[in-house]
Design a protein around this nucleic acid. Structure first.
Length: 484
RNA sequence: GGUCCCAUCGUCUAGUGGCCUAGGACGCCUGGUUCUCAUCCAGGAAAUCACCGGUUCGACUCCGGUUGGGACCGCCA
């Protein structure tokens, strides 16, 4: 392709940055980077009603967090700005005027009430709702009358019946019967252009070469091609990704799935690399058994024609696995410093800060057990504060209170004798103690482990001892013996 | 209701007419390591390839239909 590849995402600041937006952004980003093209962000903020202050920030920060830097758009600007539609309003007017003049569009004075009535009538007759065309051929007098009545008008595009077909990069050939559309509104009464319209103009002005978006835009594409033709624009290439679904197969939504990148993933301790890797595999695959990719590798491997046609269900289980995998790939130091951001308990956090080396040792023990960084607090608290637990937990499954007591006492004696609790010192000593008592290793080790951790599940007994240290371990063992 | 899109293990998917008695991954189960959990390793169950016709020497793969699911039908994007 000789022409420069330019793709864009066109978020509207009406809600949080969510999984679906992120995937669309990712595929666009990969496509742009793959071909050394440009990835632009254009903010479609023409809907004043639904505009939400925080959402643009959330979207932009989310993109950055996931590692998708945009070449043109808010903050970075670029040669085809402005990148907010609010600031582009003046740009649309000549095109509107042009369509009006060529009679390819017309003013519509119908009120919302009239339109609603029409729609209801059509629906009750089981017809698909479509604008009647009432204002299409208004006479000068009629227009004059409406104007004098003070009626406001929208601008509608005059659709000529025809078949619109295009070659979708993902779906293949797609055809629509434009006769079914009806004349659709392109400019609101308040003068604001509608998405279908501003989108086409902006894409043209910004020299967008490929429009890659969700499947929910398939019908819009036909309308936009009509508009582009009327405006003498060359249409970009289109590609529509299949939707991401809830487990019940409906379109992915907040109600049924955690969808906010920031609130549901970043805040819970998912890693951006894992999320990107996982999202890329939602609809795309490399055609091999490989599943783990860095962003750079995704860029190299990504092929738009390897994006599937069928929708995919968002499965949190696999994401969790992948996130755990990514955490395990990180060094102890990295995990430690990142995990600190997820310790909400101020006192606990301070303790990890006060004893950095100890904290590192602790992280080494829980590293493999972490699926998200958000789990950190629940996994490490007993390393810093003596645990509380039910007495009965001390007794291993097939053991008895008597044996447990003996085991704990023997272990205490053994540990008291060892200078430093190195793994290779502690293990033989404790196993020997169990043997002397003629009880199973497990009975003793379980009891010691619970005395130290207060948990039925934790890192191993010897590791715990060596990290927690002699003094504190002895304290906890004494506590355990007293409890029994 | 209309239009459009889609259809392989529970889930993500491989498969582009013979390599498929359908492969991988997550999850699940069993076993190994073992003091528990996690990791790791080995193994297993799990898809009559939605259904019915057709094309072909031969269909998961091509064609048609049926069924099912989804999206869209706004002065939202």
């Amino acid at each position: 392709m000789a022409e420069e590849i330019r793709v864009r995402i066109a978020p509207s600041p009406t809600g949080r940055f969510h999984i679906g937006t992120a995937r669309t952004a990712l595929f666009n980003y990969l496509f742009a980077r793959k071909f050394d093209g440009k990835f632009v962000v254009r903010v479609e903020d023409t809907d004043k009603e639904r505009h939400d202050e925080g959402s643009l920030k959330d979207i932009l920060e989310g993109l950055s967090w996931l590692g998708m830097e945009w070449d043109e758009g808010p903050e970075v600007e670029g040669p085809y700005g402005p990148y907010f539609q609010q600031e582009r309003l003046g740009l649309y007017e000549p095109f509107t005027a042009q369509l009006l003049e060529k009679k390819l569009a017309y003013k519509c004075y119908c009120t919302q009430e009239e339109l609603a009535t029409d729609r209801e009538a059509q629906e009750s007759k089981k017809l698909s709702p479509k604008y009647s065309g009432r204002c299409r051929d208004l006479t000068a007098q009629e227009i004059d009358k409406f104007e004098r009545e003070g009626r406001t008008s929208t601008i509608r595009f005059a659709v000529e019946p025809q078949t619109v077909s295009f070659e979708d990069l993902i779906k293949g050939k797609v055809e629509f019967d434009a006769g079914l559309f009806g004349d659709f509104v392109i400019v609101r009464t308040d003068g604001m252009p509608l998405f279908v319209f501003s989108n086409v103009i902006d894409d043209n002005l910004m020299k967008i070469s490929h429009v890659l978006r969700g499947e929910e835009h398939l019908v819009n594409t036909a309308k936009q091609i009509l508009l582009a033709n009327a405006l003498n624009f060359l249409s970009p290439q289109f590609g529509h990704f299949p939707l991401i679904l809830n487990p019940d197969r409906s379109k992915m939504s907040k109600r049924k799935n955690p969808v906010s990148i920031t609130d549901d993933y970043k805040a819970k301790g998912f890693l951006p690399d894992a999320l990107v890797n996982f999202i890329a595999l939602l609809g795309w695959n490399p055609g091999t058994d490989r599943e783990i990719f860095t962003m750079r590798e995704l860029i190299d491997e990504f092929e738009i024609d390897r994006v599937g046609k069928s929708p995919s269900i968002f499965d949190t289980e696999k994401l969790l696995w992948m996130n755990g995998y990514y955490i395990r790939q990180k060094s102890i130091g990295e995990v430690a410093s990142e995990a600190q951001n997820f310790i909400a308990d101020k006192e606990l956090l301070q303790k990890t800060l006060d004893k950095p080396d100890y904290f590192l040792d602790v992280i080494a023990l829980v590293h493999d057990r972490l699926k998200t960084l958000g789990e950190i607090e629940g996994l490490i608290d007993y390393f810093f504060v003596a645990p509380s637990y039910e007495n009965s937990l001390l007794i291993a499954k097939k053991s008895t209170k008597e044996n447990t007591l003996l085991a704990l006492k023997a272990a205490t004696a053994v540990i008291a004798e060892i200078k430093t609790l190195a793994l290779d010192m502690v293990e033989p000593a404790l196993r020997g103690a169990a043997e002397d008592l003629k009880i199973k290793d497990g009975e003793l080790l379980w009891a010691v482990r619970v005395a130290l951790s207060g948990r039925d599940a934790s890192p191993g007994c010897f590791e715990l001892l060596s990290v927690i240290g002699k003094e504190e371990s002895l304290k906890r063992l004494t506590t355990a013996i007293k409890k029994l």
